[in-house]
């Protein structure tokens, strides 16, 4: 198991956001997390790289417990080198060009040489078709281009896992496609991808497992085929706008 989550609980004040989460994520697989806005998907991602402190439970990376109580920043820096993250708002650094955005992490966090980091960045940009944008500033890029750069920036750190937090939510349909194509191209490269998204078609085609969350709980973990064509819970059927079968209601 690449990432294992056991009995995770997280509240903001009296508001329970994640309630007894158990999840196994296999190495090299694509896990898609779906659910209504506010169901806790993003918070769950943010617990995995320590952006949120969990209240109870454990998260293991391989077999190492990464959510020890009172872990310091240095501990999380080591974890964050291995778990990359890409967010909805791209969050490119606006005062740096594309290349500088990409080599900052490798040079400052991983202490790699500039030459090596640049080579890596150039190669990655080529792969996503943005070689000509290497000296462009974020403001000169379209949303889709920004998001592809943001993905490359995460890849530059050579992570084992990448967390995608609604990365296409702010994009128009044409751009959604170019970004999802990049994510798809990462499949079968040994990378473990954890994707929070509302893109059903993408989830169906790419996911190895679908995790469906509702109200802070995981209510269904299944294959895409099962989730989209015969979901087992009322919540999932409602989410997918499927008729609710009396048999399921019991």
């Amino acid at each position: 198991m690449h990432l294992t989550i056991r009995n995770l609980k997280k509240s903001f004040h009296s508001n329970v956001v994640l309630d007894d989460i158990n999840l196994d994520i296999k190495q090299g697989e694509v896990t898609v997390i779906m659910g209504r806005s506010g169901c806790g998907k993003s918070t769950l991602l943010r617990c995995m790289n320590g952006l949120e402190q969990i209240d109870a439970g454990e998260i293991y990376l391989h077999d190492t417990l990464i959510t020890k109580r009172g872990s310091n920043d240095a501990h999380w820096v080591d974890i964050r080198k291995r778990i990359g993250m890409v967010s909805q708002s791209y969050d490119l650094f606006p005062h740096m060009n594309v290349l500088k955005n990409m080599i900052l992490g490798p040079m400052k966090v991983e202490k790699r040489s500039k030459k090596e980091a640049v080579q890596d960045a150039v190669r990655l940009l080529e792969r996503v078709g943005l070689s000509d944008k290497i000296t462009a500033y974020p403001r000169e890029l379209s949303g889709g281009q920004k998001q592809r750069v943001a993905i490359c920036r995460a890849l530059c750190m050579h992570p084992e896992i990448i967390l995608f937090d609604e990365v296409t939510a702010a994009l128009d349909p044409a751009m959604v496609r170019e970004v999802l194509d990049v994510i798809r191209s990462l499949q079968n490269q040994g990378l473990t991808l954890i994707v929070v998204t509302h893109e059903m078609e993408f989830a169906e085609k790419v996911a190895d497992q679908i995790v469906f969350m509702d109200n802070g709980k995981i209510v269904e973990i299944s294959t895409p085929r099962q989730f989209f064509y015969s979901p087992q819970t009322v919540e999932a059927r409602r989410f997918l706008n499927l008729p609710i079968d009396d048999a399921i209601l019991k």
């Binding site: 952006l51 708002s89 969050d91 650094f93 900052l104 992490g105 400052k108 966090v109 920036r153």
Partner: peptide, 22 residues
């Protein structure tokens, strides 16, 4: 933007590097 600084944290950048470079 706080999002930007958060993603910097998620990248593993130290506070010092965030101050100096961002």
């Amino acid at each position: 933007s706080t999002n930007q600084l958060e993603i910097a944290r998620a990248m593993g950048l130290s506070k010092f590097n965030m101050v100096v470079h961002l």
